[in-house]
Amino acid sequence: MLELSLKRWRRGRLCLSGVMTIVVGFHLSGYRTFKSYYLDQVLRYQRPYYPGLVSYNRFVELLPGIA
Rank of each mutant, 00 (worst) to 15 (best):
Leu6His: 06
Val60Gly: 02
Ser29Ala: 06
Gln41Asp: 05
Ile22Arg: 08
Leu14Tyr: 09
Phe59Cys: 04
Glu61Met: 07
Ser17Pro: 00
Asn57Ala: 11
Val24Asn: 15
Gly18Tyr: 08
Arg13Lys: 15
Leu6Ile: 15
Val54Ser: 07
Ser55Glu: 15
Ala67Lys: 13
Arg10Asp: 07
Met20Trp: 07
Tyr56Ala: 04
Ser5Gln: 14
Ser5Asn: 14
Met20Ser: 06
Cys15Glu: 15
Tyr37Ala: 06
Gly30Cys: 02
Val60Thr: 04
Leu16Tyr: 11
Arg58Ile: 01
Arg47Ser: 12
Tyr56Val: 01
Gln41Lys: 04
Cys15Lys: 15
Phe26Trp: 13
Val24Ile: 12
Ser29Ile: 00
Arg47Glu: 13
Trp9Val: 13
Trp9Tyr: 12
Gly18Arg: 02
Arg58Phe: 04
Ser36Leu: 04
Leu62Arg: 07
Ser29Lys: 03
Pro51Phe: 12
Asn57Arg: 07
Ser36Ile: 00
Tyr56Thr: 02
Arg47Lys: 15
Leu28Phe: 08
Leu39Tyr: 00
Tyr56Gly: 05
Ser29His: 06
Arg44His: 11
Leu63Ser: 03
Leu2Met: 06
Arg44Cys: 07
Ile66Trp: 09
Leu62Glu: 06
Leu62Val: 01
Lys7Asp: 10
Thr33His: 13
Ser55Met: 04
Tyr38Gly: 02
Gly25Pro: 04
Arg8Phe: 04
Val23Pro: 01
Gly25Lys: 12
Leu6Ala: 10
Tyr45Met: 02
Val42Arg: 10
Tyr37Trp: 08
Val24Lys: 15
His27Phe: 14
Leu43Phe: 03
Val42Leu: 07
Gln46Trp: 13
Tyr37Met: 05
Thr33Met: 13
Ser5His: 12
Ser5Thr: 09
Arg8His: 09
Pro51Leu: 12
Arg11Ile: 00
Leu4Ile: 12
Arg11Asn: 10
Ser55Ile: 00
Arg13Cys: 08
Thr33Val: 01
Val42His: 12
Trp9Pro: 09
Leu28Val: 00
Ser5Pro: 03
Gly25Glu: 14
Arg58Val: 05
Arg13Gln: 14
Glu61Tyr: 09
Glu61Phe: 05
Gln41Thr: 01
Tyr49Cys: 03
Leu4Ser: 06
Lys35Trp: 00
Leu63Asn: 02
Leu4Phe: 11
Gly25Ser: 15
Trp9Ile: 13
His27Asn: 11
Leu39His: 02
Ile22Phe: 09
Gly12Lys: 13
Phe26Met: 03
Val42Ile: 14
Arg44Phe: 05
Arg8Thr: 08
Arg58Lys: 08
Gly12Val: 01
Gln41Asn: 05
Arg8Met: 05
Gly12Asp: 08
Val42Phe: 09
Arg8Ser: 10
Val24Trp: 11
Arg10Trp: 04
Tyr37Pro: 08
Val42Gly: 09
Val42Met: 08
Phe59Trp: 03
Leu39Lys: 07
Leu28Ser: 07
Leu4Lys: 13
Gly30Ile: 00
Lys35Cys: 07
Gly30His: 05
Pro51Lys: 07
Tyr38Phe: 15
Val19Tyr: 09
Cys15Met: 06
Gly30Gln: 10
Glu3His: 10
Arg11Glu: 14
Glu61Gln: 15
Arg10Ser: 13
